[in-house]
C-alpha cells in the first residue's frame, strides 16, 4: 500500500480516537489536580412546607451557592496539586493500618477496600476463565461433527447476555426468597443468606464472572485448536506421548499467544468490575474501584457531585489497569522482538 493511501485510511480513526479518547482523558487528568467548587453564602431563608393539616414554616440560615448576574451558579476552579490523590488514598491512615498488619484495618479505608477486592477478583477469575475456556474448547474439539454446532451455540449463550442482566438473574436465583436459595435451604434444612456476608458475595461474583467470560476464552481457544499441526500431534502419538503430554508440550505452547491475548482482555475488563456490585447491591460489604468512581459521580438529592475526586479515582483505575497488564505486555513485546509473532 502506498504511504499516502495508508494515512488516508487511518486518519478518520485517529481523529475519532483523539476526539473521544485522548481529549477526555486529558481533561480527566487535568481535573484530578483541580478542585471545582461553588461559591457559597449564608442566607436566612423562610421555608413553608406542608404538614399534614397545616403548614410548617421555618426560618433558618441556609448555605446556598451564589449566582452571577446572568443567574448562573458561580464556579471556581483551584489548582490543588496532589490533594485529591491524598484525600482518596488516605496515605497516613493507610501507613498506620499497614503497621498494624491487619487487613480489616486497611479495609476501613474505602479506596483500599475497593482495591483489595478488585485485585483479588482479577487474580482469582483469570486462571479459572483460562482453564475453563480451554477445557470446553478441547471437549468441543473432540466431539462428533453433528454435536459441535449445538454445543458451541449453547456454550456461547452466557457471553451474549448483557452483563447487568446476567448478574441480576444470578441475584434473583440466590437472593433470600430466590428459587435456588429455597432449594438449598430445603436440602440443607437451614436458613442461608448469601447476600449478607462479604465472602459469599465475592464467591457469587467470581462464579458469575467466570460463567460470563469463559465462553469468550472458549471460542478463541477453539479457533486456535483448529490450527494445531496435525502431523506434529501424530508423530507425538507414535513417540508414545499420552494425551496430557500432547496437551502440555504441543497444544498449550501453540495456543500461548492466544492465552496471553485472552488474559490481557480479561484483566482489563475485570479490573473495571462494576455490574456485579450494582446488581447484587453489595456496597455494604464489597466495593470495587470502578464503583467508587461511579459513586463519586452520582449526585445526591441536592445535586452535589464530587467530579474532581471521581477524576482522581478514574486516573488511579487507569494506572492500576496499566500496572496489572504490564507483565503480559512485556512478554508479548519479548515474543515480538524474537520474531515469534
Amino acid at each position: 500500500m502506498k504511504k499516502k493511501d495508508f494515512y488516508l485510511f487511518i486518519v478518520p480513526s485517529l481523529l475519532m480516537m483523539f476526539l473521544f479518547i485522548a481529549v477526555p482523558l486529558a481533561i480527566v487528568f487535568q481535573q484530578s489536580f483541580y478542585i471545582t467548587q461553588n461559591v457559597f453564602e449564608d442566607v436566612e431563608v423562610e421555608t413553608c412546607t406542608p404538614g399534614f393539616l397545616k403548614q410548617i414554616c421555618e426560618t433558618e440560615i441556609q448555605t446556598k451557592p451564589k449566582l452571577d448576574a446572568n443567574g448562573n451558579i458561580i464556579n471556581v476552579s483551584v489548582f490543588v496539586g496532589l490533594e485529591n490523590y491524598k484525600n482518596l488514598l488516605q496515605i497516613e491512615k493507610f501507613k498506620k493500618s499497614l503497621y498494624s498488619f491487619s487487613l480489616s484495618e486497611i479495609e476501613k479505608i474505602n479506596f483500599w477496600k475497593a482495591f483489595r477486592f478488585t485485585v483479588t477478583f482479577c487474580l482469582i477469575t483469570l486462571p479459572l476463565v483460562i482453564s475453563l475456556g480451554l477445557l470446553i474448547a478441547i471437549t468441543v474439539n473432540n466431539l462428533t461433527q453433528s454435536l459441535k454446532g449445538p454445543v458451541i451455540f449453547i456454550s456461547l449463550l452466557p457471553f451474549i447476555i448483557t452483563p447487568i442482566i446476567g448478574a441480576l438473574a444470578i441475584r434473583w436465583l440466590f437472593v433470600g426468597e430466590g428459587i435456588l436459595t429455597s432449594l438449598i435451604e430445603y436440602l440443607l434444612e437451614r436458613d442461608i443468606a448469601l447476600f449478607a456476608s462479604a465472602w459469599t458475595l465475592e464467591l457469587l461474583m467470581v462464579i458469575y464472572r467466570v460463567w460470563h467470560v469463559a465462553p469468550f476464552a472458549f471460542i478463541v481457544f477453539y479457533a486456535g485448536l483448529q490450527t494445531v499441526n496435525k502431523e506434529t500431534l501424530e508423530s507425538a502419538v507414535i513417540d508414545g506421548a499420552n494425551r496430557f503430554e500432547r496437551l502440555r508440550y504441543i497444544v498449550i505452547p501453540h495456543l500461548m499467544p492466544l492465552i496471553i491475548f485472552v488474559s490481557l482482555i480479561h484483566l482489563m475488563d475485570s479490573y473495571r468490575v462494576f455490574e456485579e456490585i450494582v446488581a447484587f447491591s453489595s456496597q455494604a460489604y464489597v466495593i470495587s474501584l470502578q464503583w467508587l468512581t461511579y459513586d463519586f459521580l452520582t449526585p445526591d438529592d441536592t445535586g452535589n457531585r464530587l467530579i474532581n475526586r471521581a477524576s482522581t479515582s478514574a486516573m488511579l483505575t487507569m494506572i492500576g489497569v496499566s500496572v496489572i497488564i504490564l507483565p503480559l505486555l512485556k512478554r508479548t513485546w519479548a515474543d515480538y522482538r524474537e520474531g515469534n509473532l
Binding site: F40, T49, I56, E58, Q62, T63, K64, P65, D300, D301, T302, G303, N304
Partner: peptide, 14 residues
C-alpha cells in the same frame, strides 16, 4: 420534623 434539606444535608446524606 420536616426533612432538613439543603446543600450540606445532601453531602451529609451521602
Amino acid at each position: 420534623a420536616p426533612y432538613p434539606s439543603g446543600s450540606r444535608m445532601g453531602v451529609m446524606h451521602s
